[in-house]
Each structure stands twice: as C-alpha cells, then as structure tokens.
Write a protein that binds this DNA or RNA. Structure first.
Lengths: 249, 249
DNA sequence: CCCTCCAGTTGCTTAATAAGAAACTCTGAG
DNA sequence: CTCAGAGTTTCTTATTAAGCAACTGGAGGG
C-alpha cells in the first residue's frame, strides 16, 4: 500500500539528511531512477520549502520549511510533552542541561532539552542525533538493546570524537555491562572536550526502555562524585516520567 | 512539474501541523480525495515515521521522524543554534514571545522562537514567513537593505492584514527612516488584531544586519512605554548574539 | 575559439502506478 | 441488536509518474 513516488520523496529527504547535500544526478543514482524523475521529485519538495538549493550546482539540502514541524513533534509525542516539564524543573534544580533522548535506528535523537542556570553551552540538541557509543544517553539505550542489535551497532564504525571516545568494541561491551549494573551511564569527554554527562533509562508502559534521561555540563562542575548524586536525581525524575507514560512497577 | 501524489503527502503534513491531529476521513475531505487514497498516503508517511497514530481511531499526528529533518536544519543555521538560548532567557525575563528572523528573498522567516511565561499566543512562528512591511522584524530588515532593494519591495504589493497595516509606500518610507534613527522597529496591530511587537537588528561578523531580534505580545501588555523598555533589553541581547556571530564593535 | 563534461530542465510518449469506487472489518454508541 | 463511523482491502482503469531524448547553460581544458 506504499505510494511509490511518496516513498521516493522521503528517500530523498533521508539521503540529504545522511549526506548533508547532494545534486540531482547523485540523487537519481542513489534512488535508481532517471535524472528527470529525481528532478521532479526534488522540485516538488523545493516548492514546499522542504528542500532548498545553495548555489547553482549540486547543492540541495534539507530546507528551512522543515523547522515548522519541529515544534509540532515535540508538542505531541508523549515523551516530549510529559518529559519537558520534568526536564525544566530538573535543569533548574541541578543547574545543568537536561535532555531526553530516544533510539532512532542506530543513533540517539534528542526530543527535549532544558538548560539550567549554570549552563554555558550554547548547543541546542533538540532534534539532533548523537552517536550511541559516545554519549551517556546512547550508552543507556545501547545497554537496553537485545544482544543481536547491540552487536550490530558494535560491528559498525565507532567514530572517535575526542581522544577519550571509546572505539574498541570490547571496551564498550565492558562499559555496557557496567551500565546495566550501575543503573546509569556516564560520558567523560568522549563526545566533546570538557563535556561530562550522565544518563538513566526511562521505562514505557510495557516496561521496555523508552528513552534516556540525561544531564550534562562542563567537566569542572561534573565530578565523579557529583555525577553519582545527579544520577540519583535523574532516576527519581525518570521514575516519575515512566509512571506518567503508564509504567506500573 | 509538481508530482501530485508527493504534493498531496506534503499537504497532509501541513494539515496535521495546522490541526494537531486528524483522521483519515477528515484528511480525505480536506484534500478532496477519496478515503482510500488518503489511507495509502498516510500509510506511506507512517511507514517512515513522518506520521504516527495515537490510539485506534482518528488520531494521526506528525511523527518523530520529522524531528530528524528539523534537526538537520537547526544544526546548519548558526543563528538558530546560537540565538535560541538567548531567546529562551529573554522570553523568561520579559514574559513575552521572542523571535529571531532573517531575510529570505522579500519576506522575513523566523528561525527561532521562545515563549515567555505570560505568553498566551499558541502560534509558533518558527519556519514561518512573515511580510516585511507588516512586522517589526520585517521593518528592521527592510531598513537595513540598500535603497534599491528597499524600493523593489516597496514597489511590490503591500498587503493589508488589518486596518492598521501600512500599505502606502510613502508612509512606509517614513517609518523606515524612523527605524534607522530609533534603532528599533515597532508593529501595532499591523499583522494581527491585538498583536504588538518590537524588533532590533542583529549584526553578523562583517557588521551587516544578519537578523532581527523581536519580542511580541498582546496590545494590553505592550504599551508604547513598555515597548521602549523591551527595545533596550532586546538591544543588549542582540549585541551579545552579534558578538557570538563574530561581530567586533 | 571549439569541444567535452556535467549540472539541471523540458517535451513527449506510454505503461505503470495512483486513484476512485465498492465492499469489507471492527468498534462504540444508542 | 442496528447503525454510524473509523480505517483497510480488492479491483479496475485512467491518469499520472516515469523514462528517454533533447535541450540549455556554465566551467574547464586544449
């Protein structure tokens, strides 16, 4: 029941998301369609601002019209709707940046964020995808996967973002075991220099891990001792969110 | 050259954005297509997480997959990335809705928004285009244009949105001179009844006007006196954002 | 200067796919 | 129980999307 041309248009969006930018010929090759077909599909997306062109040749990207949908999504999905107030109160309490992230294929995607009063980081992670292996949220989500899915991620490329990023599969396996035991995951300058983070799991109605709830801040403020304290706060908030999502312990 | 079925799928996304949620029958009515057509188009969007259903009956909404695309856009725009935190802190301080808008052809387009605690308006302007002549941001951007570009806009249609909209080119020229002198622009029920707004310019690295920073709220709260106070706050925040963008005064 | 390559677009043809209609299934309300 | 309304499925067909070939324009090289 898939409408093929619509599916192709979505495939174009996914391609632009992956590649950053592409031209008509490249898009046609990737889709396995004729250039004129690709041109028309892109034209349709462009007419609605979902795709835009930077320059005359080859540089189509996701368009600014997509921004309109971001607020709608975060206002509507339960995790964002229910979790955002919790994010905000926790950010105020901790003074750090608090995020909720969910699994999206082989990456984590942030669906909610609130910044605390001490937060210096300018980055808004909402809607941004982050690598599973290099973030505290990602490790929580990885640890919750069945072994087959987990191995699939570990078999992929574990990109180094800093000298601290865990890129050895064996090391990551050990870390994930520890996450399961500790009930929280940490990240010490593995994604960005100077950035520490800690995350715990949020359970959905059926008891499966629905999301990761995390707090992040500069290394100088997030010592290992403080991280453990924050993990406790996160766990309490996560339990409340789990309850709101329908989980009964 | 529009691919009709793709256009219809996009129309469905726009409808869900407008309405919040809708069922297959309502979508079919709005598009003027048969129910089975609407069902197939929605199915295709749903298969790719661009649409999701809450419950069994009637409650289709925008899906989380759209967030991925929105995230790609915000990650690319420095203004949105750097300006959003400032938006948020200013919205909290002022209690009003704060926006950042950039020039996009002959319209302003909002790239960031934060709502204050007093904000009653449900409208999310992010990603939306607004007319230059009828908004405070638009006037700031207009005033920053060279005379040739400015005259091109003034020679176009100046649509009346309310009885207060400035539609006479001469009157608008006078207003733009005033904007340049005052260092801020205002909007008194020119776009929507009951809506007042004030905007200041944000300078980019080279000193050119990169964006407009605005605050808006209901007429009963935004008196002319309060507008002048808010303009001062906006100017301070805009100076900070300009600095972040690389402008050295 | 001409030629080649590559970007994207346009016009035409046609067949494949999308669309419409009708029938179906399921659920909830009266 | 019936009926209305939700969404889905099957079938038919015509309309629309897709493919092909030609086109336009720009850049680079000889």
């Amino acid at each position: 029941m898939v409408v093929q041309s619509v599916d192709r248009a979505i495939e174009i969006l996914e391609l632009l998301l992956r590649e950053g930018e592409a031209g008509i010929t490249e898009i046609a090759d990737e889709l396995g369609v004729h250039k004129s077909t690709a041109s028309r599909l892109v034209y349709t997306l462009q007419a609605r601002d979902l795709v835009e062109q930077h320059g005359d040749r080859g540089r189509f990207t996701i368009g600014i019209g997509m921004l309109r949908f971001a607020g709608a999504v975060t206002g509507q999905i339960d995790l964002a709707r229910l979790g955002t107030p919790l994010c905000e109160s926790l950010a105020e309490k901790l003074g750090e940046t608090v995020n909720i992230a969910v699994l999206d294929g082989a990456v984590a995607i942030n669906v909610s964020q609130a910044r605390g009063t001490s937060a210096v980081a300018a980055q808004n992670w909402t809607g941004q995808r982050t690598p599973l292996h290099a973030t505290s949220s990602g490790k929580v989500l990885l640890a919750s996967m069945d072994e087959q899915d987990q191995e699939r991620v570990l078999a992929g490329e574990l990109t180094a973002y800093t000298p601290n990023t865990i890129v050895e599969p064996d090391e990551l396996r050990t870390v994930l075991k520890r996450v399961a035991e500790d009930g929280y995951a940490t990240c010490f300058e593995e994604l960005e220099p100077g950035l520490h983070a800690v995350a715990v799991e949020v359970l959905g109605a059926t008891g499966e891990v629905a999301a990761a709830f995390s707090a992040s801040g500069p290394a100088y403020r997030l010592s290992r001792k403080r991280i453990r304290q924050i993990a406790r706060e996160l766990r309490a908030a996560a339990a409340e969110l789990s309850g709101q999502l329908g989980y009964i312990n």
